[in-house]
Design a protein around this nucleic acid. Structure first.
Length: 227
DNA sequence: ATAGGGATTCTC
DNA sequence: AGAATCCCTATT
């Protein structure tokens, strides 16, 4: 919804509170824990065009340099530097030469963990998301159903690489409203192997470190053995 | 300097 | 099933 509202709500109606950004301490935990706790949280993007937001419904954990599926496997480089820094920052990278993907840095500066945000349930700025996604966007539930799709829908690219997610500027996380939290919690969490990491070998490639809200229509793809 | 390949998505 | 498309990392 854009443009001035007129005539309806009383001037005393409080504006919808955006909710305050998650503090650094919320991110200072192992990637596996953070990946699960991010499910049901609200990801908010604000730019010149207004507010774009959604509920996180799918994540993947990347542990650190020993994780053969993680970009941190080659140690600290220019590209992966954010992962080797403090928790609560963004690690945004370009994949296949054309798609941005968003990670949330976990742990502490001594451990290069991160969580890939793989899918959102769109909640705010749907008109703009449809426009950004173009004719291929499909139904609204699919506008941010994938790590690159959500970056396109929320106008996230490498200009936000290294961005501090705890300040409430441009990109941050908040708790969802209680009704949404309850709905997501009731659905339950499913786990499965991470997507697109066969190069990591069987050990690391098959670990069930992908997490999702069971049966949610905005998942990037189904989980293998949903139970 | 250069080669090999990618935490994806869309179309054929 | 194949392309798009650029940057990263490792190697020469």
């Amino acid at each position: 919804m854009t443009g001035p509202t007129h005539g309806h709500g009383s001037p005393r109606d409080p504006p919808p509170a955006p909710g305050r950004p998650w503090p650094r301490s919320a991110f200072e935990r192992p990637a596996l824990d953070l990946a699960r706790s991010l499910l049901g949280a609200r990801l908010v993007r604000e730019d010149e065009g207004g507010l774009l937001a959604g509920i996180i419904v799918e994540t993947e954990a990347y542990a650190g340099p020993e994780d053969r599926a993680s970009h941190a496997r080659s140690g600290r480089t220019r590209r992966t530097a954010p992962m080797f820094g403090p928790a609560g920052h963004a690690y945004v990278y370009l994949v296949y030469g054309m798609h941005s993907c968003l990670n949330v840095v976990s742990d502490g500066a001594d451990r290069a963990g991160a969580v890939l945000i793989r899918a959102l349930e769109p909640t705010d700025g749907l008109d703009r998301m449809r426009h950004r996604r173009g004719a291929t966007g499909g139904p609204d539930a699919r506008l941010a159903a994938g790590p690159a799709r959500l970056c396109q829908a929320l106008a996230i690219d490498r200009r936000l690489d290294g961005h501090d997610l705890t300040t409430g500027d441009r990109l941050w996380l908040t708790d969802a409203d209680p009704h949404t939290v309850a709905r997501i919690a009731d659905a339950g969490i499913v786990a499965g192997p991470r997507v697109g990491v066969a190069y990591a070998g069987d050990d690391w490639g098959s670990r069930p470190w992908r997490f999702g809200v069971r049966g949610h229509p905005s998942l990037s793809r189904p989980f293998p053995l949903e139970s």
